[in-house]
Nucleic acid binder design. Structure first.
Length: 671
DNA sequence: GTATAGTCACTTTG
DNA sequence: CCAAAGTGACTATA
């Protein structure tokens, strides 16, 4: 092979040629993709709004040109100004219009012919029965109103590798990816709810959400075929659906396990593989983590049984060619996982290199192609390893980590689930010495506000008084996942007659994940979970002793550090959750129930809970959602923390404290 | 009731 | 335009 090298081997990793487009005429061209560099005097990319894909930035090549301007457009800000009790009274119609409007928008967006015509026939009632005939929705049955599927631009064939990402670039692309995934998640949850409501059955909401986003041009990275890491996607990131991988551009095949640039599109006429998914569908796979024997695709029957020999074509050939050129391949692993909607979870495990390939006789007796992949060094710990490690840590923490656990429950049984304290850095055990509280302690007068609950002994429905208090809909889905952030959420509470199982009781039930306070060189203390935390899930309350404005002033004069909930209110992270403005141009963010500006402060110098050890981040994975349940006083809501993305086990939780400059780190009361 | 096998409707891509 | 790539929701069975 050394004698004839038809294509220049650029030895692209780890030190590819610097010059964009530097290649021989015969060579395989993978231009280096420079991250966008913003001039210093301009705002950082993440703050640039609206984003202009075709703006004259110094390097316009790295633009997500599939994102329309509206993706970053400001939310309809005037809606936030509406005052409670005027045009949004709980008894007024406007409360409902907000919710119904979304519902309507949703219906038009998802208007499609029924999946099966028979379903309508099945619904034809027995003449003797009094069953109600489901009225076929005119949107779904009439072909005339089904919007023509907009032609989506095909994937680009330009093969590129993203290089030299700075910290700002990472933050910027992380933000883009996260926003995109939040939109996907919102659409999916809405699709589930709508289908349930209209037909009483589940549907492929994963496909629907992806389809709507594709129609709107919201899929990422379709303008370039990226070799190597995808900007904004980290090793260890978790996905629950294959289509979500397509949407962020991590893996572009809806079904196939090997994603590749086809021979006809490649600059040298050869196919090139860019990513693979290992999900256990091939019996001849041998997954040792760092070293992976991967089986090529094809040759299986409908029941995933190998029935013919595989051929060296398509993805199989592409993997072989990737080996030839030493091109790195993204590896995603799929696992069974209880607790995810699909029963599966996909983990991005980073980059591998194919070092060997051969034709072998598989267990079935038929020929299969095999590829030996080795994980490229100096990458973050594999997500799948962390998942498994966390699993053992949950059951037998001391056997896996014999040293470092200072406490197996700093809450002293006050939380539903023990909160661990881990420190393998120094002898500091401070978190053990504070009085642990599970919930915020409000001044007694906060409870004087009259709280009228509901009488739904049989379970709360969409028309229950408590739903009305939330603007005509419940904030949570059937699994207790936050559907859309709101200025404040009214959960059913002590004055309601519904049962504890009511779907409108979520954050009041407390911690559901195994949380761990840990010592860190970077952040002092941090918080992480041993369980996977699903996006939109409740994590814990931010608890402390609530001080009135006057009390807070005295405390502040003494130099005590206080937490000001108004700062969380200002960041308005809740508004990002469930924000569908990229889909619906006339989307209006929830404005009801609105809350007055919060004057109170929280003192965590004596009593606190796990939350106050959370680090600050301007690109956080946790947000504050104000909630009321045990009293009705809008001036004193609970600060409830929810996950903004799927948080892998052992990844540090972070919160946007909306801090001013004097807050350089996270809130650090303890030295 | 709870794992598991089979069936069905899907989609994107080269 | 089509074949081929699995998945997720459901349903029947052990």
């Amino acid at each position: 092979m050394a004698s004839v090298v038809p294509f220049l081997d650029l030895n692209l990793f780890p030190d590819p040629p610097a010059a964009t487009g530097a290649t021989s005429s015969a060579g395989l061209l993978i231009p280096k993709l420079e991250p966008k560099v913003e001039p210093l005097d301009e705002p950082t990319p993440a703050q640039t709004q609206p984003h202009q894909p075709n703006s004259s930035s110094p390097n316009p090549r790295l633009c997500f040109n599939s994102l329309p301007d509206s993706f970053f457009s400001e939310l309809n800000s005037n809606s936030a100004d509406s005052v409670q009790g005027t045009d949004n009274s709980p008894d007024g119609k406007n409360v409902y219009s907000e919710f119904h409007r979304i519902s309507e928008l949703f219906r038009t967006a998802f208007a499609k012919p029924m999946q099966k015509q028979e379903r309508v026939e099945v619904a034809v009632p027995d003449p003797d029965s009094k069953a109600i005939v489901p009225v076929p929705d005119e949107n779904t049955t009439s072909a005339a109103v089904v919007p023509a599927r907009r032609k989506c631009k095909p994937r680009s064939s330009e093969l590129v590798r993203v290089m030299n990402m700075g910290a700002d670039d990472h933050r910027y692309f992380r933000d883009v990816v996260r926003k995109t995934r939040m939109v996907y998640n919102s659409l999916r949850v809405f699709a589930v709810a709508e289908e349930e409501k209209r037909f009483g059955r589940r549907c492929r909401a994963d496909l629907k959400a992806a389809a709507v986003m594709k129609e709107r041009g919201l899929w990422l990275n379709r303008d370039r075929r990226i070799v190597g890491s995808i900007p904004g996607v980290f090793v260890g990131d978790l996905f629950f659906f294959r289509m979500e991988l397509c949407v962020v551009g991590l893996h572009g095949q809806a079904q196939a396990g090997i994603d590749y640039l086809g021979a006809t599109h490649s600059s040298n006429g050869e196919p090139i593989a860019t990513s693979i998914i290992v999900s256990g569908g091939y019996e001849d796979d041998d997954d040792q983590g760092d070293v992976l024997i991967y089986t090529g695709h094809g040759g299986q029957d409908k029941n995933s049984r190998q029935c013919v020999h595989q051929k060296l074509e398509g993805g199989n050939l592409a993997l072989e060619r990737s080996m030839h050129y030493g091109i790195e391949v993204r590896v995603i692993r799929g696992f069974k996982y209880q607790g995810s909607a699909s029963g599966k979870v996909y983990v991005y495990d980073g980059l591998y290199r194919v070092i060997d390939s051969w034709f072998d006789v598989g267990k079935s007796g038929f020929g299969v192609y095999k590829y030996k992949l080795i994980r490229i060094e100096n990458q973050p710990l594999m997500g799948s390893v962390t998942l498994k490690f966390a699993l053992t840590l949950r059951t037998t923490p001391l056997s896996v980590r014999p040293l470092g656990y200072a406490s197996l429950d700093i809450s002293m049984k006050k939380e539903n689930i023990p909160v661990f304290l881990f420190n393998d850095i120094d002898a500091n055990h401070e978190p053990m010495y504070y009085q642990y509280i599970v919930t915020a302690i409000f001044p007694p007068f906060a409870y004087h506000e009259e709280n009228k609950g509901c009488d739904c002994v049989a379970g709360c429905m969409d028309d229950c008084p408590c739903a009305r208090k939330n603007g005509g809909e419940f904030a949570y889905d059937q699994n207790g996942i936050l559907v859309r952030g709101k200025p404040v959420i009214f959960e059913c509470g002590t004055h309601c007659r519904c049962l504890a199982s009511c779907r409108n009781r979520v954050s009041q039930k407390g911690v559901r994940n195994r949380l761990e306070v840990f010592r860190s060189n970077e952040t002092g203390w941090g918080v992480r979970s041993l369980d996977l935390i699903q996006a939109g899930a409740f994590i814990c309350e931010y608890a402390g002793v609530v001080l009135t404005k006057e009390q807070a002033q005295i405390f502040a004069m003494n130099g005590d550090s206080l937490v000001y909930p108004s700062r969380f209110a200002e960041t308005e992270r809740w508004a990002e959750w469930g924000d569908l403005s990229p889909i619906f141009t006339d989307y209006v963010r929830p404005a009801y129930p609105s809350i007055p500006s919060l004057g109170f402060a929280m003192d965590v110098s004596r009593m606190r809970n796990v939350a106050c050890y959370m680090s600050h981040s301007s690109s956080p994975n946790v947000m504050v959602q104000f909630v009321l349940y045990d009293h009705n006083n809008l001036l004193y809501p609970h600060l409830m923390l929810f996950a903004m993305e799927n948080i892998p086990p052992l990844r540090e939780l972070s919160l946007d404290y909306g801090m001013a400059d004097e807050w350089t780190g996270k809130l650090r009361i303890c030295a």
